[in-house]
């Protein structure tokens, strides 16, 4: 137990901030993000010996985060706000970067699969193959979802986000 505690604590001390950031981008709510991280870390502690032997603790925790379904928790909110299932009316007007919620609001309009891909590919920095492994889907799915997500974000966000040198 002492070794487990020591190793687990070192991991949490080093990685907790990043895990909270991932969870926050996935769900857009700091309280839910914190709940999600705590749940993931509890599961990690229980499975610590096995997971550490596998050599990829980050992947284990990350998969709990992205596959937890917490990003679907916005569904009740959507049900309560009839008519918002499609475009967010604020988002259609173009979101300024100065608006701190601009990117989150734009992410919130993405289907959960696309949102996960955006977080894993462009925030965590995973390759297409690694993203596919985390999400238990094909690389083709990752590519198509990534393409659709970027196109959607491109529509919603202001030119501040765009490349100086034009399309990539």
């Amino acid at each position: 137990m002492a070794a487990r505690d020591e190793e687990f604590s070192e991991y949490v001390a080093q990685r907790r901030t990043q895990l909270r950031r991932i969870a926050y981008l996935l769900c857009g709510d700091v309280h839910k993000a914190e709940d999600l991280v705590q749940t993931a870390l509890m599961k990690l502690y229980v499975a610590w010996n096995r997971v550490q032997r596998s050599g990829n603790v980050d992947a284990y925790v990350r998969r709990i985060l992205v596959n937890s379904g917490i990003d679907e928790s916005r569904r009740p909110w959507r049900r309560e706000n009839a008519g918002l299932d499609g475009l967010d009316p604020v988002a259609t007007e173009g979101l300024a970067f100065e608006d701190r919620g601009a990117l989150l609001a734009a992410l919130n309009t993405l289907p959960s699969g696309q949102r996960r891909v955006v977080v894993l590919r462009f925030f965590v920095g995973l390759t297409i193959e690694e993203t596919a492994t985390d999400l238990h889907c094909s690389t083709g799915t990752v590519k198509s979802q990534s393409s659709r997500a970027l196109a959607r974000l491109n529509e919603l966000l202001t030119p501040d986000f765009r490349a100086v040198g034009g399309p990539r």
């Binding site: 462009f122 974000l153 986000f161 399309p167 990539r168």
Partner: peptide
């Protein structure tokens, strides 16, 4: 098109 590096920074 949205720039991936800028997106990452934001």
């Amino acid at each position: 098109m949205i720039d991936e590096k800028t997106l990452q920074e934001h």
